[in-house]
Nucleic acid binder design. Sequence first.
DNA 1: CTGAAAGCGCTTACAG
DNA 2: CTGAAAGCGCTTACAG
Lengths: 346, 346
Amino acid sequence: MSREITIYDIAASLKISPATVSRALNNHDAINNNTKALIHAKAEEMGYRSNKFASNLRRQKTNTIGVIVPRLNSTLMSAVLAGMEKVANESGYNLLISQSLESFKKEISNVKTMFNSRVDGLLVSVSYDTEGFEHFKPFIKKNIPLIFFDRTFDDSDCMSIVIDNVKGGYDATKHLLEQGCKNILHITGNLKRNVYAGRLKGYMQALEENGKKFHGENVFVTDLSPEAGRTIAHQIKTTNANVDGIFVSNDFCAVACMSELKKLGYSIPSDIAIVGFNNDPLTEVVEPSLSTIHYPGKEMGEVAAKSMINHLNGLMNIGHTNYIVLESELIIRNSSTKQTSSTSKT
Amino acid sequence: MSREITIYDIAASLKISPATVSRALNNHDAINNNTKALIHAKAEEMGYRSNKFASNLRRQKTNTIGVIVPRLNSTLMSAVLAGMEKVANESGYNLLISQSLESFKKEISNVKTMFNSRVDGLLVSVSYDTEGFEHFKPFIKKNIPLIFFDRTFDDSDCMSIVIDNVKGGYDATKHLLEQGCKNILHITGNLKRNVYAGRLKGYMQALEENGKKFHGENVFVTDLSPEAGRTIAHQIKTTNANVDGIFVSNDFCAVACMSELKKLGYSIPSDIAIVGFNNDPLTEVVEPSLSTIHYPGKEMGEVAAKSMINHLNGLMNIGHTNYIVLESELIIRNSSTKQTSSTSKT
DNA sequence: CTGAAAGCGCTTACAG
DNA sequence: CTGAAAGCGCTTACAG
């Protein structure tokens, strides 16, 4: 096809030096405004497009931010990515996105790829079964900025963007207690992950504060899949456990559990009240609508990308910040309101 | 930080030429296997990582595929992206992802960015209100491969990966007719988009085939948001329309509509039977569970990425293929089964 | 099977 | 405010 136009072509046609063209195109201060205008016009006219590789090679900078998420197809993560993309796009950065599919092994390989792709910075939410921090060391060694979001390391020295998971677990559990629940189950994920450990801690705090004893057998560590929710519903039926409240760390799992409980003859919330986590849009359309903790996914993505870009542009040093904690809040819907028996028509 | 190792460092330390190092690292045929092994070992030992910019600059190739989707935070699109990422990752390609946020203007800007980023190929599902093909012309002119998926252009000459939307609309409508529906509404999106136009066509075909007259006022063109679904539910109530079936081009909108109809006193499916589209996981957990058309999102992403990569590697020419049509199928659940009054406990 | 050399298209320290 | 020149780290046609 037609040969690419380079700054040399523009320089030749304008009888000036390539250096000046390069400076003008980058809006360098020291270039005469008329010259600049002339060069910009010519570039436009000739259909010039900058060659990022040459530029990157020279500048040793990629204008690309790597993102590794546990999975792409999750409501929360797609909201986070939408937020990141928005900010990155506005700032002229590109996003290189990959998913670990919740596997530690794949995450290691993704991190390596990001390293070899020379991303300017890396945003990560770790996989379900990630162990240790070792695979991120190359980034630390090379001083490439690394920010964790949602699923983070408590002891990494890297900046982390999170919600207050302890508070989330506490609020959810306290709400269930206030509704009169005496025996509250907690369904959650791998406790190595800060998010699940934090929510459990909040659950325990709320119990303790209300003089309730904590029972280890009331905590179910699962993969938080819908299947897990359904299985536990059956266990509740089978063991004839005296359960009257459930706090689940994931909306989809909560909904599946709720739905199965209903099939087994339980009334929600009168027999068993349920609170989920994330505020997935799904929570509003199920019946009864699901109480949950709102999770600001899009905002988290925006803040993560913005922090990274500010750091890269020297406007901020992420080395000086340990945590950014975003606002999350309890949203009370019908699945948990025992008191004012609401308008649920079911 | 520590200086980057280059092929010159490896060459010097091994007292051979950089050319040989480069060839060995790229597994060039004409290099002695022992030399190769030696070089690979040394590279590993020295912590070498290839500089993609230099390589890209030289080869004029980026190993990056651009993807533009209407939105990142949609169940369907995140499934598609998950499929693309999987294939790309396995083949050593990177994905540069951006979203048009359903805006034609933003799509134009995204396409430009992709062009300037010199992606090797571009995968696109167009925005809700995209008009015309003009903004893709630069890709055509430069012969950069372009593949559309899901929301495509019928007349673009570009390869498209789609489902049979006409069949989907036909199957859904025919099913409703078989359930005894006499007056079926269709809620859909912008008819400029092939997906919605096709489904409407299928809807009309099914009606005609069954000797039913088509009524234009039974078709609602909306943005397919949950709000749109709720609004139409109220319209049905207000106008006292004699509706006994609804086919909606989107599950989330269908669920919202169904939920609102229930609140207004309608029984689903006995009063009104409903079929959605996409087979969003949500369809299984609502009550009644929603009949829908299964949409193979992940497969679509895989096929799109695979086709692009095969084309780039010369294994296939997308210029020779116009369409790839993926299998989709009607999934019958409780929201539409009037006949065998099922176990819906509601 | 290996090497010398040119060049991909930029950017920038230095000089004026 | 502008230019000449070097160099970023690779790849590959050419030669042997």
